[in-house]
Amino acid sequence: MFTHTHGNESHATVDEVIRCEKLTKRFTDGNILAVDRLDLAVYRGEIFGLLGPNGAGKTTTVGMLTTLVIPTSGKAVVAGVDVVAQPALVKQMIGVVAQTNNLDRSLTVWENLYYHGRFFGMNGREARAAADESLVRFRLTERAKADVMAISGGMAKRLMVARALLHGPSVLFLDEPTAGLDPQARIALWEILDKLHANGQTILLTTHYMEEADSLCDRLAIMDHGRILAMDTPKSLKESVAADTIVTVSATGDLDALARLLQDRVEGATKSQRLDSTIQLHVKGTTGVLPKVVTAAEQGGYSITDLSIAEPTLDTVFISLTGKELRD
């Protein structure tokens, strides 16, 4: 691994790797407010997730933090460097894994790593050693001489992670790291990120998979329409729902009226929300919930077509914050 010596230590910001203050991006093209006065702090060594649906502003936020999107207003500091004032300096400090395969197609797998190392100031010998070591570490050695278009999607993503880490960035950005990967490749990537985390690598990732956010992230910001709606650990976010059981009800008839009816009649109901074609009922501290729901609905003259029960998930949190589901 490529390590660097350093001079005097500044303790003021040593633990804060990313800070955004009222960070805003309005695209003049279409006058879209993609990110709206975002406040955020990411600390050294944590995996921080931006969770939200497509169009929530996650990718734009990462774009601003990685110097590719220029903020309209507000401030962002990465590794102690202002991204607007000194973008070239910030680029020394970050590693970026884009959502799409942006490997250099004119180069082989090994060369993608080697030249990346050279861009970041390694000499030929250092870059060769770093590329070799990285291939071993990411189990790509057998494909070292392959064309990057000839390797699988999972391998391409691993190579992109390997490349982003080659120069030892202070923070690794991953935009929708497992989108489009098959389940096996997704799990393999999660394992890699877990190991990086265990080694103390600071990571910021965006995702619209709640399982990914839940299992990987130390802390999460839930985003929608360019704003952060809630920010906490996955556990605390789920506890914030103030329910231990979530009942999803499908029925015929006036669902809004049924939602009100269930909240009134079911013992322990803390919240009842109508979604497109279902009702979500939050219940706390009760056993035998399902018979109670069925009874209440039938007494009200409704016929239930489907019923399911689950613990609160991040999806539940998202629904209670926005009134819509995270999944498309």
């Binding site: 040593v14 102690g80 460097v81 020394q92 960035p169």
Partner: peptide
Amino acid sequence: SSVPLTRPIRSP
């Protein structure tokens, strides 16, 4: 110790 420090490494 191999975790990089939060500071730029080279002059711009």
